Simulated assay, not measured.
Amino acid sequence: MKKLLLLISFLSACGIMASEESEWQRIMVRGSLMTPDPVLLEVQRLEQLGQVKDVVILESYPLQIWLSANPVTVKKLQSLSEKNRSTR
């Protein structure tokens, strides 16, 4: 019985993890023309915290940063990118 409960708990946790992963979106945000780039710095910070993944930085000016993140993080990064757009 204990093994069955453990198995059920494990499978439930996997289901929760899978549903959280499926909510993540793949997006592109633009960096700014500032040095250091505040958008890039925030992406790197969030990557270290595990809040973004699959980060690809294209060598363009301004930077194009492709990443995967949950909808809340996506909105924050898009807002930061928009805020710094006026410096372009």
Results as ranks from 00 to 15, higher is better:
residue 22 S to H: 06
residue 55 V to T: 08
residue 36 P to D: 12
residue 88 R to V: 11
residue 38 P to V: 01
residue 46 L to D: 09
residue 61 Y to G: 03
residue 80 L to F: 03
residue 5 L to I: 03
residue 16 I to Y: 11
residue 52 V to S: 02
residue 5 L to D: 12
residue 59 E to N: 10
residue 66 W to F: 09
residue 29 V to W: 01
residue 22 S to W: 11
residue 52 V to M: 03
residue 17 M to Q: 10
residue 35 T to H: 05
residue 2 K to I: 15
residue 57 I to T: 13
residue 48 Q to G: 06
residue 51 Q to V: 00
residue 82 E to P: 00
residue 58 L to R: 08
residue 30 R to L: 10
residue 73 T to F: 05
residue 26 R to G: 12
residue 31 G to S: 02
residue 52 V to Y: 00
residue 32 S to I: 05
residue 69 A to G: 00
residue 74 V to M: 07
residue 29 V to M: 02
residue 67 L to H: 05
residue 8 I to E: 15
residue 78 Q to K: 11
residue 46 L to W: 02
residue 79 S to C: 02
residue 18 A to H: 03
residue 31 G to V: 04
residue 15 G to W: 01
residue 31 G to K: 02
residue 13 A to M: 12
residue 86 S to F: 04
residue 15 G to L: 05
residue 83 K to I: 10
residue 47 E to L: 04
residue 76 K to L: 09
residue 37 D to H: 00
residue 36 P to H: 02
residue 48 Q to D: 13
residue 18 A to K: 05
residue 84 N to W: 13
residue 49 L to S: 10
residue 51 Q to N: 03
residue 21 E to Q: 05
residue 23 E to H: 01
residue 31 G to L: 01
residue 43 V to R: 02
residue 42 E to V: 01
residue 11 L to N: 04
residue 57 I to S: 07
residue 53 K to A: 11
residue 21 E to R: 02
residue 62 P to E: 13
residue 64 Q to R: 04
residue 3 K to D: 14
residue 53 K to E: 15
residue 60 S to T: 15
residue 83 K to A: 14
residue 10 F to T: 14
residue 24 W to T: 14
residue 12 S to T: 15
residue 71 P to V: 11
residue 65 I to K: 10
residue 61 Y to W: 14
residue 45 R to Y: 13
residue 18 A to F: 04
residue 78 Q to S: 03
residue 21 E to S: 01
residue 43 V to L: 02
residue 10 F to I: 08
residue 66 W to K: 03
residue 36 P to N: 07
residue 12 S to N: 12
residue 56 V to L: 10
residue 27 I to E: 14
residue 54 D to H: 05
